[in-house]
C-alpha cells in the first residue's frame, strides 16, 4: 500500500482529481493544491473555525479531515458562495454590517453562518434550544450559540450577529 492516494471530489461545482500524500488535510488540499486560499488556517486543530467549509450541505472544519476521506463529496468554499458583483446574501450582509475587521476569520464565519441558517431550518437543536420537541427559531441567542465554533480575534462578534440576523430575514 502507498503513502499517497488519488481522490476526486467536486469543489464549487467543478470536479477535481488530486494525487495527495495521505496526510494532506482537506484544508491544505484546498489552499496548497487547488490554490483556493479563501479558506483560512487559524489553529489547524479544530479550535477556531477559520477553515470552515460546507460539505454536502454541512459545515465542517477542513483542518480536521483528510482530503482522501472525501471521495465523491461536493465541497463549497467561500469562493463558491458568491463572487464580487454577485455576492451571496450573507456576504452582502457582512459587508453592510461591518462583520469583520482584519477579515481573517471571515470566510469561515460566512460559510458557518450560511450553514447555521440551514441547520435552524432543518430543526437541528442547539445548547440554548429551550424545548427539544418544538420547532427551532432564529433568535440572536441561537445564532450566538451556534456560531461559537468561529472565533474572531478582532472581536467583530456583535456586527457578525447583526449580519446573520439580517441575512436570515432576507431569506425568510
Amino acid at each position: 500500500m502507498s503513502y499517497s492516494s488519488q481522490v476526486s471530489f467536486t469543489i464549487n461545482g467543478e470536479s477535481r482529481v488530486l494525487d495527495v500524500d495521505n496526510r494532506t488535510t482537506l484544508l491544505d488540499a484546498l489552499r496548497e493544491h487547488l490554490h483556493l486560499t479563501g479558506t483560512k488556517k487559524g489553529c489547524d486543530h479544530g479550535q477556531c473555525g477559520a477553515c470552515t467549509v460546507i460539505i454536502d450541505g454541512r459545515r465542517v472544519n477542513s483542518c480536521l479531515t483528510l482530503a482522501v476521506m472525501h471521495e465523491g463529496d461536493a465541497i463549497t468554499t467561500i469562493e463558491g458562495l458568491g463572487k464580487p458583483g454577485d455576492l451571496h446574501p450573507m456576504q452582502a450582509a457582512f459587508v453592510k454590517h461591518d462583520g469583520f475587521q482584519c477579515g481573517y476569520c471571515t470566510p469561515g464565519q460566512i460559510c458557518s453562518s450560511v450553514a447555521v441558517l440551514e441547520e435552524i431550518k432543518a430543526n437541528i437543536p442547539s445548547h440554548v434550544t429551550a424545548d427539544l420537541t418544538a420547532a427551532t427559531t432564529v433568535t440572536e441567542v441561537e445564532i450566538r450559540e451556534r456560531m461559537s465554533g468561529n472565533l474572531c480575534r478582532c472581536g467583530a462578534y456583535s456586527n457578525i450577529v447583526e449580519a446573520i440576523v439580517e441575512a436570515a430575514g432576507t431569506r425568510a
Binding site: G46, G49, R58, V60, L64, S126, H127, L132, T133, G149
Partner: peptide, 21 residues
C-alpha cells in the same frame, strides 16, 4: 422525545462544525 438527556449532552459539546463530523 425519549432520551432528551442524550440530545442535551451532545449539543453541549464541541461546536456545530465538529458535531457534524
Amino acid at each position: 422525545r425519549d432520551y432528551g438527556l442524550l440530545s442535551r449532552a451532545l449539543v453541549a459539546g464541541a461546536s456545530g462544525q465538529l458535531r457534524n463530523k
